[in-house]
């Protein structure tokens, strides 16, 4: 981490990146906010490390390109996570992996082993997973999710309902499996 920028606020770093295209300032900003945003991308993409890294790179490029839309006082990390989620969703949509229109058949758990919550979320259908991660973990409202996904708030609520049910099914199967052992 560059010592001259290490103690700077996000606003100062953003200004340095915008005005001087300072690599050192970008480096500090990157180190400070990437781990949290990367976790978001990783979860939305179902735990695919490689895809999450591609999304993270694209998200930073888009963020730097639109730095003038970031307002001082707004949490930079939350702003970056919003962009990251958007890029991840774009990727899923482009590859037609998200289905919202109808009920999605719940895939059977990959293995009879005990799974944790993270694995249960990762195994959800993308349409469920995106809404669950954005609402229950990232704290987006249904209106915000609806806007980003191009669906109605009602559809977002419906997807969340089914996603929660699917997570419970997986975790319950877990418990039943544990009892059988």
């Amino acid at each position: 981490m560059n010592p001259s920028f290490a103690s700077c606020s996000d606003a100062e770093l953003v200004l340095a990146v915008r005005r001087d295209r300072a690599d050192a300032a970008f480096s500090v900003l990157y180190d400070r906010h990437t781990p949290r945003a990367f976790q978001t991308a990783w979860r939305i993409l179902g735990g695919n490390e490689h895809e999450a890294e591609d999304v993270m790179q694209d998200a930073w490029v888009r963020a730097v390109d639109t730095l003038d839309t970031w307002r001082n006082g707004q949490a930079f990390g939350a702003w970056l996570r919003g962009i990251t989620a958007h890029v991840a969703i774009d990727r899923l949509r482009r590859e037609r992996r998200i289905v919202f229109e109808s009920d999605v058949e719940l895939p059977a758990p990959a293995s009879p082993d005990v799974i944790d919550l993270e694995t249960a979320i990762a195994s959800l259908a993308p349409g469920y997973r995106v809404v669950l991660v954005m609402h229950d973990i990232e704290g987006f409202t249904h209106e915000e999710i609806a806007e980003r996904l191009g669906i109605t708030a009602g559809t977002s609520k419906g997807q969340l309902f089914k996603a929660r049910r699917a997570v419970r099914v997986r975790l319950a199967a877990n418990t039943a499996g544990g009892r059988n052992d």
Binding site: D23, P35, L117
Partner: peptide
Amino acid sequence: LPRERIPSAELKARTTEAVR
């Protein structure tokens, strides 16, 4: 659930280059 995840070290160099 963990709030952060550390990506590979190679991503930083790749991202910095892409941004530049």
